[in-house]
């Protein structure tokens, strides 16, 4: 269940296969001998990670967080479970860990948005990390969503946003965060329930939890 403790043999790729023809696991295996091919992994996945991190922390922090994520990944590449051909969940997991150090900043922005309707994270191009300009959000429900996101625990927020923004499956979220599948389900249920409660305009949808007792 825990990805990182599996033995990691992978079929060896053809010795001279071009990096772009390898899957992530083969690429990581190749990078043990040829570290420069690790840059290919960056080109493959950094775009998605940057957008995800920027959406949570703002563009100013995204470069550093994603840069560090890949550096940590590079250093841990001997630990990668090469039975997994897609490295993105692994990278999201590392990023979640790095992002946790910026939790206050993330929460501050949700709070500001919830109070003022101005999203500090949606910066105009060219503003720097300390910029106070943001923009008034166009989404009417944005302040309520921000307030709800702020109210979630760190673990619940990771699960919810990896699912909703990074489009990871339950299994991939479990792999990314190193938690059991059942925990992913229960965290996601709890987080969605809180979101729903915060958004009164939604159509009422009965949830599995409401029909359960206890």
């Amino acid at each position: 269940m825990i990805a990182s403790i599996r033995p990691s043999p992978a079929d060896p790729p053809a010795p001279h296969a071009a990096p772009e023809t390898l899957d992530d696991a083969q690429l990581i295996g190749r990078s043990l001998d040829e570290p420069e091919v690790f840059a290919e992994l960056y080109h493959r996945h950094a775009g998605e990670l940057l957008r995800y991190v920027a959406r949570r922390l703002g563009p100013a922090l995204a470069d550093d967080v994603v840069g560090e994520t890949f550096l940590i990944a590079f250093r841990r590449r001997t630990r990668y479970d090469r039975t997994r051909t897609k490295a993105l969940p692994w990278l999201y997991g590392i990023a979640a860990n790095v992002m946790s150090q910026h939790r206050r900043s993330e929460l501050r922005a949700y709070r500001a948005l919830a109070r003022t309707g101005v999203d500090p994270v949606a910066q105009s191009t060219g503003s720097d990390a300390d910029s106070v300009d943001g923009k008034v959000t166009a989404q009417a429900s944005a302040p309520a969503i921000a307030a709800a996101l702020r109210s979630l625990s760190e673990g619940d927020r990771h699960v919810l946003l990896l699912f909703a923004w990074a489009d990871l499956s339950y299994e991939e979220v479990a792999e990314a965060l190193g938690i059991p599948l059942g925990t992913v389900r229960s965290r996601l249920n709890r987080a969605r329930r809180k979101m729903r409660a915060a958004l009164p305009d939604l159509d009422p949808i009965p949830t599995p939890e409401t029909s359960r007792h206890g």
């Binding site: 420069e36 840059a39 960056y42 080109h43 950094a46 775009g47 998605e48 940057l50 957008r51 920027a54 959406r55 563009p59 470069d63 994603v66 840069g67 890949f70 550096l71 590079f74 999203d119 994270v121 949606a122 989404q139 429900s141 944005a142 969503i145 921000a146 919810l160 909703a164 923004w165 969605r192 979101m195 729903r196 958004l199 939604l202 159509d203 949808i205």
Partner: peptide, 30 residues
């Protein structure tokens, strides 16, 4: 519309990085 749809709309205009940005990032990593 459910809460996930609303959540997916939240900050949905966050733009993906362009090629120059990615190239600079890869260079920094290297």
């Amino acid at each position: 519309m459910d809460e996930l749809t609303k959540l997916r709309e939240f900050r949905a205009d966050t733009s993906p990085p362009d090629d120059e940005h990615l190239t600079a990032g890869a260079g920094r990593l290297v």
